[in-house]
Nucleic acid binder design. Structure first.
Length: 350
DNA sequence: TCTGGGGTCCTAGGACCC
DNA sequence: TCTGGGGTCCTAGGACCC
């Protein structure tokens, strides 16, 4: 039998900010784009629990956050700071796991099947890990324990902050079925809307929906979701990971139809991407550009080369060629981006 | 309300090869 | 003169996650 932990750091960005600057402790903190007195473009990355009391949430437009709480403390993200904190914590987590998988800057899965003989022992280990992170890093996390990744993940979100939720195999359905279907990872806003139209409101409803209905609507993804809804998830905790693509996007502060500006920004993006490619000893075969117009209509164009390369000029020239047709309409542009994929590792990644 | 920036995965049509 | 089946790659778009 497997025992999986999902560890999720609580309000990670604001918590790290408050740790670095004690004056901020206890204040409503919003990390994200510059609100610019309510005119700012961009979204909330993460809000402290004090700020959440005003209704502010991750991914909310920063302009809306400003309306909800003009007196909150607004901070630009400081990723260097978060990466250091994150890697210290990941080191702690790794030391307690048979297998360890980082699932983002602020979360990780641990397979602890050989470290705990049963869920009671798993609970003790989870508590120990929470205390260790609190004592050594002065940051709080929430932990979910379950027989697989999906149950552990949903459990870690069940009680926050500094919550510990253990769901044994026999309790999985009783735990999942009453939850709102949107709590299931993989059910985003669009899928949730489609499901609600079918009167599928809880995870239990999804579990008892006719498979044909789900296949018709969502294809193979529908079947995967239904397995998740039943608490079935065979995915392993995966130790090592290969990057599949590297890219950069920029949203203009003001929508632009200035060709010189757009090409200059495209060049900068290509250079940044190239730097990442080279420093990771990679080569790429496919180049993709992205254009977003003011009403969020988004297009991509890509080109695969005959051979992998790491040449900056090839990247720049192809990006320029791919984006050129979008410049002709004289329409304003909100965002442009460059991405490379089909990556070749010249050395095995560590 | 008006939507960042870093990614992953899936779909579907078409080209091409055997 | 009408045209299979399987596999893989390319391209564009879309949903989702943190």
């Amino acid at each position: 039998m497997r025992i999986i932990l999902h560890v999720d750091l609580d309000a990670f960005f604001p918590s790290v900010e408050a740790r670095a600057n004690p004056e901020l402790k206890g204040k409503p903190l919003v990390v994200g784009a510059d609100p610019k007195e309510g005119q700012g473009r961009g979204v909330v990355s993460s809000a402290s629990y004090e700020a959440r009391n005003f209704g502010i949430k991750s991914a909310m437009p920063i302009s809306r956050a400003w309306k909800l709480c003009p007196d909150c403390v607004y901070l630009r993200p400081n990723f260097e700071l978060y990466v250091v904190a994150s890697s210290n914590i990941m080191k702690i987590l790794k030391s307690h796991a048979d297998k360890f998988e980082q699932g983002g800057i602020d979360e990780a899965y641990l397979d602890i099947s050989s470290k705990a003989n049963n869920f009671a022992e798993a609970r003790d280990l989870a508590r120990k890990i929470m205390d260790e992170i609190l004592n050594q890093e002065h940051l709080s996390c929430s932990v979910g324990v379950g027989p697989n990744k999906i149950v552990a993940k949903i459990a870690s979100d069940f009680r926050k902050p500094f919550g510990l939720t253990v769901v044994e195999e026999k309790d999985v359905k009783g735990f999942l079925y009453p939850l709102k279907v949107g709590k299931l990872p993989g059910v985003g806003p669009k899928t949730e809307r489609s499901l609600l139209e079918l009167k599928i409101e809880t995870i239990g409803d999804l579990a008892s929906t006719k498979p044909e209905t789900l296949t018709r609507l969502f294809g193979v993804w529908g079947m995967r979701l239904q397995k998740f809804a039943n608490g079935v998830d065979e995915r392993e905790v995966i130790e090592e990971y290969e990057t599949k693509s590297i890219g950069r996007d920029v949203t203009f502060e003001k929508d632009s139809d200035d060709e010189n500006q757009i090409f200059a920004v495209l060049n900068d993006l290509a250079e940044d991407v190239h730097e990442d490619v080279v420093s990771n000893a990679l080569k790429f075969k496919t180049i993709t550009i992205r254009v977003r117009y003011p009403h969020f209509e988004t297009h991509t164009r890509s080109k695969s080369l005959m051979f992998p390369t790491d040449d900056l000029d090839i990247l720049r020239n192809n990006a320029k060629r791919l984006i050129a047709p979008f410049m002709r309409g004289r329409k304003k542009v909100r965002l442009i981006g460059v991405r490379v994929s089909n990556l070749i590792y010249q050395f095995k990644p560590m």
